[in-house]
Design a protein around this nucleic acid. Structure first.
Lengths: 212, 212
DNA sequence: GCGCATGGTGAAAACATTATCACTACCCCT
DNA sequence: AGGGGTAGTGATAATGTTTTCACCATGCGC
């Protein structure tokens, strides 16, 4: 999908909103009114531009025949390949119909959690961590952090120039960072957890986490 | 919403499907074709019936002006009042946009979990248990069970005529039932868990579950 | 046997909507 | 200086869609 102009993005946004609030796409006259255009042809041109750029599909001879071509659902990110951006295509296992507005701040993607480092906060192997994408995190938040080539989920503690990444499992080590020397790259903050109880855990058998 | 006839339910279902698959409501001719009716007026009558029964709203003079009036989202059930059905209105805290098809079998409602009886399976106080409504459960499944006037979440173990409801926390007791004498009423099985990390736990403070 | 809701056909008028033509203007790039 | 994408107005033909008319048939309760 080629880059949209500011005007085109405005119009696409209006179509999205109309669809959500009215339950049907807008007509060309409705769009013209909304943008105070005197001619429906101005709208038609924009729609054709949006269609050739792949943002929408125009159904011929059908009233309100505007279809959004956006991928829906949030991407589920699996193991993050070394050095690649979290949302790189090779890391995305699929898209799932999770409503971003169910969480606060808004959910941007899902991260499949590996290991039991957050077990005592009820985040288990295979769980989906719901992540809000941001570069900044506050003291005490659950963060998705990049350490070298790896991505980990831990709780963040900030004390002046020092930072700690604290697991919720005594079997795992707290990571101590000196922000004057080490780079702490935040990929996002955890805003929720989703677990599918009937999907078998990736390892094997029913996932029963017995206390040791 | 008054009861629908079989024919009306069929048509409502088609509208739902058309909306999901095409992204816009059907027109009357489209409905007539789908049901092999020779006249759009047959459709119009059905739509008027659906509208007076409160299933849809008809927007006058608008192409495809059919709006579904169904409540969307799954109901979140809070504390279950003694003796009342789980989904009774007084137990429902609200509706949330959770896609039922994200879970398997299909999700029917959300149950706000109280207490830490399933802590070691990563189900914490305040978590939403995603429940599939059924009266039958198999050995080993996580069940929502009614015991007298209370509703609890436990893992079910069936051994012949005996049944056990097993918590995942050594501080709680396993319930032993004799199916020849005690009634075991299953309200549903747990198919998923959803946790909102940024909503403060109902009790107080950040929900950190320290091991004892 | 009557009224009433349901489930239809057939047709036509009125209106909503799409599609296309001609023309203008601005900006950016080569 | 010219070509191409963007952003418009104005108008009209063709088609899609809603709405309403008249009429018929069945099943149900009373």
């Amino acid at each position: 999908m080629r880059e949209l102009t500011a005007r085109q993005a405005e119009i696409l946004d209006f179509i999205r909103r109309h669809l959500r609030e009215e339950g049907r796409p807008p007509t060309r006259p409705e769009l013209a009114r909304a943008f105070e255009l005197g001619s429906t042809n101005g709208v038609q041109k924009h729609l054709l531009a949006l269609a050739t750029k792949g943002a929408i599909e125009l159904v011929p001879n059908a009233a309100r025949g505007i279809r959004l071509l956006e991928e829906d659902g949030l991407p589920l990110v699996g193991r993050v390949a070394a050095g690649s951006p979290v949302l790189a295509i090779e890391n995305v296992l699929g898209r799932y119909p999770v409503d971003p507005s169910l969480f606060n701040p808004r959910a941007d993607y899902l991260l499949q959690v590996r290991g039991l480092s957050m077990r005592d906060e009820g985040i288990l192997d295979g769980d989906w961590l719901v992540v809000h994408r941001t570069r900044e995190a506050r003291n005490g938040q659950l963060v998705v952090a990049r350490l070298g080539n790896d991505v980990t989920v831990k709780r963040l503690r900030l004390r002046g120039t020092k930072a700690e990444l604290i697991p919720a499992n005594p079997d795992y080590q707290t990571l101590h960072l000196d922000l004057t020397r080490d780079a702490l790259e935040i990929e996002g903050i955890g805003v929720g957890v989703i677990r599918n109880l009937m999907a078998p855990a990736p390892s094997a058998g029913p996932r029963r986490v017995h206390r040791l």
